[in-house]
């Protein structure tokens, strides 16, 4: 069977892969073979920036690609605020809501610097310099003595009336002083608005940030999203020429279809297609084009929240998957052979 997922106007066909042993009687030698995999597997990197990575994984099974995606979202650990000790909060925003907002602020901490917290431990020695980052937030809003009198702009009238994530101050504990000397803990995005204040109001609190995973709470997820899509395939069955070609071109995002000097439409870059299936709405292209997606070509897009570079998140997900496999292999039930 082909490894093209069929895109019909009303349904998607051929969605599951069948290249595993025993699927059909004639599935010749489809035992998974490392050498074969090594040969066929490919990784192309489109771009990697500070926050995003876009790369293609070609020639691997959906289950593995999906495992990477799931692990990146839910199981790669990262650091986030978990305990907020509020000393004073006279602002309009309630303690729980403020704590929730602080919790969702992504922090620039290398999670490898911290160890896991033991939840059974006694409250007093639960938090150590090994496993906890302490941040503090102390903001008092005051009137601006130099405000121009006829102004109504709060930026001019008050000082500190907006509390941003950048106001969270890192308080290194114990050996953290040296450990984080070069890269102090800061919020990845300094301008996240946490609260608004008016003169006389203040917020004073301490935050304990610990290690966690995304399946516990979304704030521990190191990615804002990690997902993949399959590479689109556009197969022109019959030549489309002239005016029709222009119309055909319009059915796709710009850059997908081009028209050659003969006036015939050809697929220039199927990767740019968003698979809007617009072309299937047009009667005149009926039978002339076949849309599809390549089932073993995953275009990954990983957007980091900023704590780690996106590629590292991916590497970690691979490591975690490997550990899982290792674990399974070491399980008594896995050691049958």
């Amino acid at each position: 069977m082909s490894n093209i997922v069929g895109i019909e106007h009303d349904r998607v066909t051929n969605t599951t892969s069948t290249d595993f042993p025993g699927y059909s009687a004639d599935s010749a030698g489809s035992d998974w073979d490392l050498e074969k995999f090594k040969k066929s597997f490919n990784l192309y990197i489109s771009y990697i920036s500070e926050r995003t990575a876009n790369f293609d994984l070609v020639g691997l099974d959906t289950s593995v690609a999906n495992a990477f995606r799931r692990i990146m979202i839910a199981e790669v650990p990262s650091v986030a605020a978990e305990y907020v000790y509020i000393f004073n909060n006279t602002s309009v925003i309630q303690d729980e809501v403020l704590a929730h907002r602080i919790g969702l602020v992504p922090l620039k901490v290398d999670p490898d610097q911290l160890t896991w917290i033991t939840s059974e431990a006694d409250e007093k020695d639960k938090f150590t310099d090994d496993n906890t980052i302490v941040l503090s937030l102390d903001v008092v809003c005051t009137k601006n003595p130099n405000a121009s009198p006829d102004s109504t702009d709060p930026d001019n009238l008050y000082r500190n009336h907006k509390v941003y994530a950048k106001h969270l101050k890192f308080e290194p504990q114990g050996r953290q002083v040296e450990l984080f000397a070069n890269n102090p803990v800061v919020p990845c995005d300094p301008n996240i608005l946490l609260a608004k204040l008016r003169p006389g109001q203040e917020i004073s609190l301490r935050v304990h940030c610990i290690l966690g995973i995304g399946s516990d709470h979304a704030k521990y997820s190191p990615v804002s999203t990690a997902s993949y899509r399959l590479l689109p395939v556009i197969d022109i069955k019959q030549p489309i020429v002239g005016k029709e070609a222009l119309e055909f071109q319009k059915c796709f995002p710009s850059g997908v279809i081009d028209i050659n000097e003969k006036g015939e439409a050809y697929v220039k870059d199927a990767r740019k297609d968003t698979v809007s299936r617009e072309v299937l709405r047009h009667e005149q292209f009926n039978g002339k084009v076949k849309l599809g997606r390549q089932r073993d070509h995953f275009i990954f897009n990983v957007e980091s929240t900023g704590a780690m570079p996106p590629e590292e998140i991916f590497f970690k997900s691979v490591r975690i998957l490997r550990n899982k496999a290792e674990y399974l292999r070491n399980c008594p039930i896995g050691n049958l052979n």
């Binding site: 895109i7 349904r11 066909t13 969605t15």
Partner: peptide
């Protein structure tokens, strides 16, 4: 839209 199942990772057969 064409959606992928979060559990299997495969495309869903319906839009």
């Amino acid at each position: 839209d064409m959606l992928y199942s979060g559990i299997t990772g495969e495309c869903l057969q319906a839009y």
